[in-house]
Amino acid sequence: MKLLIHGRNLDVTPAIREYTEAKLTRAINHFEGMVKEADVHLSVARNPRVPQQTAEVTMYANGTVIRAQERSENLYASIDLVASKLSRQLHRFMDRQHDHHHSSGHRASTTPGTEEIVGELSVDHSLTEGREPELPAPAVRRKYFAMPPMKLDDALHQLELIDHDFYVFRDADDGQIQVVYRRNHGGFGVIQPRDA
């Protein structure tokens, strides 16, 4: 497994690196063939009066993004908590994969590899010729990602795996972009577009 460890407001010492590697390796040892890459961000709050140390991990397992984040007063405790959370999420992911593969009439779709996608998107010309460098508008961060059509229950499953409050997806039935989110008092909600 390829493991990238980054630190924000802290130096990633060899001890922290070894501890993180050991905890994550132990958390995914049953799933190691499935997890190809993990991106770890360790951070310490800038304000010394706020003892908050965060461990955030994003894993790529068979084309699925699994993300977890934990905060505590101790970086090692945050790493322990995030490793446990990832292990639970991977178990849920495997159980769901197992259930889907054994249900009648269902065939899993294959996720194309990076080589296939990059091959389809080859560029013949210069992307920078005739252009001036410019900075994006302040406080705007853009993210781009593929949105294969999926059913609502698949979107809910993805919401659990990425550990966010919402998940944007393209509905398999009508092709519309929708947002599924966690409600404050429990349960989920869906935001759907409507013609004006």
Rank of each mutant, 00 (worst) to 15 (best):
I28M: 12
D11C: 08
I79K: 01
L4E: 15
R8M: 10
V50G: 00
D11W: 09
R49A: 05
P112Y: 07
V57R: 02
K23E: 01
S122E: 08
V82E: 05
A68G: 12
H30P: 08
S43P: 00
F93P: 02
A77F: 00
K85W: 01
H101T: 02
I66G: 02
H100R: 14
F93A: 02
E132H: 12
E73H: 14
H30A: 15
L4V: 09
P48W: 13
S103K: 15
V40D: 01
S78V: 03
A61Q: 04
S109F: 02
H30I: 06
Q97V: 09
S103L: 03
A22F: 12
I66F: 10
T111P: 02
S43E: 10
A77I: 03
D99E: 11
D39I: 08
T110A: 13
T64I: 13
Y60E: 15
H98A: 01
R131I: 08
I28D: 03
I16M: 13
G7C: 08
V57E: 10
H98R: 04
F93E: 01
P112M: 14
K85T: 12
R71H: 14
Y19Q: 07
L3Q: 10
L24S: 02
K23R: 15
S126W: 12
R8C: 07
H6N: 14
K85H: 07
V123R: 07
L75F: 06
Q52P: 05
A61G: 03
A22M: 09
L75A: 01
R71Q: 14
P112Q: 09
G105K: 04
D95S: 07
A45N: 13
T54H: 00
H41T: 07
K85E: 04
